[in-house]
Amino acid sequence: MTALVSHLKLLEAESIHIFREAAAQFRTPVLLYSIGKDSTVLLHLARKAFWPARPPFPLLHIDTTWKFRDMIAFRDKTAREFGLDLIVHTNHDGLARGINPFDHPPSVYTDIMKTQALRAALDAGGFDAAFGGARRDEEASRAKERVFSFRAAGHRWEPRRQRPEMWTLLNGRLGKGETVRVFPLSNWTEGDVWRYIALEKLDVVPLYFAAPRPVVTRDGQLIMVDDERMRLEPGETPELRNIRFRTLGCWPLTAAVESEASNIDAVVDEVLRAKYSERAGRLIDHDQAGAMEMKKREGYF
């Protein structure tokens, strides 16, 4: 184990406080469960917040149908184990139109299969608040994000209309047509998330740990071949490399890193010595400068 775990209990208490405030103030919250490490921590904190009762909201997963197979297995096991309601939503219209990450630019694919799908699922469920695992340390435009992040009608995020948050007081009174994204992990860093997973001995998707897996190299990025839908370019042959993932998303768009970190302690160690900031491994972010902020305005996280 590494040093500095004493602050994790403070972060935990703060997150529990946020969960409880949101559950008390909103009528129909939902937890956006994306299966990754942040969602794992988020869910664990939700369970702590309402213990011995169960979290009073369902989980929502936006399934693009391109998630790693290990992720889907982990998702279903988790929901079963904790006895939670799981809503899985897919943009079937997008599927029918043949939208996929090979033929369409990442920005188009992501907009249709993730952003639009999320908006549709939130509207369909009539959810007035959605818990998400976003952290302020992830990316520059998130450094200013609120804990209760208000969305105007149509899920639009308007930076100038965000409410000031003073002390630990959280004002969740909704204006007309407004909904809220709630970020209990706002003050966590990637290092905190991993140290907490280690401290609490939480199960995560095995893809976070290094193992020999079939990959190809494209534009300097390692892409894992997760199923037969992979489109190999002429001359490309998958080779076995020792890899792991720092973030998990749609497999054709998520780059792996070469690593020997095959257990939690090694991962914590690697993360704390990190040479690359986390989102470098997510191809969708290279599209344009300020990409995340654009996506947020459109209703993606």
């Binding site: 500095l4 302020r136 340390d137 450094a143 200013k144 930076p159 706002s186 003050n187 290092g191």
Partner: peptide
């Protein structure tokens, strides 16, 4: 606006 940044030492 207010920006939040995180860092740690040993």
């Amino acid at each position: 606006d207010i920006a939040w940044r995180y860092f740690e030492t040993a």
